[in-house]
Write a protein that binds this DNA or RNA. Structure first.
Lengths: 104, 104
DNA sequence: CCACTACTTGGCTAAACTACCAAGTAGTAT
DNA sequence: ATACTACTTGGTAGTTTAGCCAAGTAGTGG
């Protein structure tokens, strides 16, 4: 028997993406790094809330941070996260008609 | 301004994948449809628990079902769900060294 | 009809998650 | 040192989720 896929670890990563604000932040970070204050403006939540969302994503390995003066800049750690989104689009698209990843 | 991505809908889809048992089921369903009873054996939970997991994924548009005699068979509704996993692998791999989607 | 199998749904409790405020840390500047 | 900005962390209340058992539904077959 092979080591068998570790679904617990994988689920943790996916779960870290499964929140509207976190998804919006990942989407924004695709264009380059941003500080927590910018991300707060983006999602319109309390700074502490945004900081906690980021720490969840950081623990999951989705983003990494870098201090620069007073600011903390976050960036995607793995660029493919957004290709990833294509499949999600496909699920949504499939609600109306037939289409999948390759098409989008 | 463009219609702006609906992160709530997308997050719901992703969240439906963010659970070890559900991930294991999606993984198994990649090889073809399975009845709830087989999936129960796979994840080792109560039949009612498995049924609820499946209904979450069905509502999210990840799977669809089909009755066949006494059984209810579930199958993936969007095949790309597993390509999707490649990026998750990349996040895990990045924990040790540099690698991403294209490499896996 | 009754019994049996395969599911689904309701109800419940325990655990996890989310978001806020408040307080603390760290770097900058006076 | 004091003050200010940019975060992070602790605490807490409200919401959501997960899993089990029990009860109900739906086909199958005697």
């Amino acid at each position: 028997m092979m080591p068998k896929v570790d679904f617990v670890k994988r689920a943790r990563i996916i779960k870290a993406m499964g929140h509207p604000s976190r998804l919006a932040m990942l989407h924004a970070l695709a264009d380059g790094e941003m500080c927590v204050c910018d991300l707060r403006d983006l999602v319109g939540a309390d700074l502490s809330t945004v900081s906690k969302h980021l720490s969840v994503m950081k623990r999951a390995g989705l983003v990494e941070d870098r201090k620069e003066g007073l600011r903390v800049n976050y960036r995607l750690r793995v660029p493919c996260i957004l290709d990833f989104m294509n499949c999600v689009e496909a699920v949504l698209a499939r609600g109306k008609k037939t289409a999948c990843c390759s098409t989008l």
